[in-house]
């Protein structure tokens, strides 16, 4: 079965003053796959994420999701178009409960305004119910039932990571971009995360994954791209990447050809 390209990243370049953080990056992400993005520290992975999600503006290049160009749109419109993200250093809404965090994720797909909120008419009540139901089912989906009423900042590290994923899923994304979701997780939590990611893929959501845990990436991803010093040095299936001499050089060091 040939999969359709859902996200097209073309010629993305980003410079900070004289520093070239990313140069001419092209990536094509197919619908329904897990696309891994790896590379040594400082390779530009998170910069690329920040460009895709509207936090940074690229110096050059464009990014399309389902043939709609999203480059240079503000973050909230990119989320609305169907790209949600998590953060490398977890950024939950600390004092809100787990459930409320996920409810915030529903914001972009709902639209009751001030008047509706104050009068709480039938439509507003129904929408609020829908938000709650959806948030509860997502909490259930990532397996956080037991702790959803706790303030997010009191959750364990692994739970916070999963809550961030649930919150991103609440925006009903087509593509979900995960920035090092396994960082700092113990082996049990990592294997739970792997199951969750497989489940998300089965539900038809494309995953763009930045990860340092090479074992996780190689076992899970359909396609892997490798960045080094802002340049894409390889792209292919995990087995192709494993035997790519450029990748081995970037990761293990070696003579510069």
């Amino acid at each position: 079965m040939k999969k359709k390209i859902i996200a097209e990243i073309s010629d993305i370049t980003k410079t900070f003053g004289g520093l070239v953080a990313l140069s001419n990056i092209d990536l094509n992400i197919k619908g329904g796959e897990i696309f891994g993005l790896i590379g040594p520290n400082g390779a530009g992975k998170t910069t690329l994420f920040n460009i895709l999600t509207g936090m940074y503006r690229p110096t050059k290049g464009f990014f399309k999701l389902e043939d709609v160009e999203l480059t240079r749109l503000p973050p909230h419109l990119i989320v609305k178009a169907g790209l949600a993200r998590t953060f490398q250093n977890i950024r939950l809404f600390g004092t809100m409960t787990g459930l409320e965090n996920v409810m915030v994720g529903c914001h972009v797909r709902t639209n009751i305004g001030v008047v509706g909120a104050i009068l709480r008419h039938k439509g507003a009540r129904q929408e609020e119910e829908r938000i709650k139901d959806r948030a509860r089912s997502l909490i259930d989906y990532v397996g956080l039932n037991a702790s959803s009423a706790q303030a997010a900042s009191t959750l364990s590290y692994g739970d916070q990571r999963r809550l961030e994923i649930a919150r991103a899923l609440a925006t009903s994304p087509k593509v979900i971009a995960l920035d090092e979701p396994a960082a700092g997780m113990n082996p049990t939590e990592t294997s739970q995360l792997r199951e969750l990611l497989v489940k998300i893929r089965e539900d038809g959501i494309t995953i763009l994954l930045i990860e340092h845990d090479v074992k996780l990436v190689m076992g899970l991803c359909d396609t892997v791209a490798v960045l080094d010093y802002g340049i894409k040095i390889a792209e292919g299936t995990p087995s192709e990447i494993k035997s790519n001499p450029e990748v081995i050089r970037a990761y293990l060091g070696g003579d510069v050809p």
């Binding site: 999600t53 973050p75 989320v79 950024r91 809100m96 994720g105 914001h107 104050i118 507003a124 991103a168």
Partner: peptide, 28 residues
Amino acid sequence: RLENSRLGRAWVAIREDETAAQAMGINT
């Protein structure tokens, strides 16, 4: 009423982390 609404949650989200609020699709 405002506090317990979609807008009230958006306000608190901005207070807690404005960047994350943006990334959740809130028009900050």
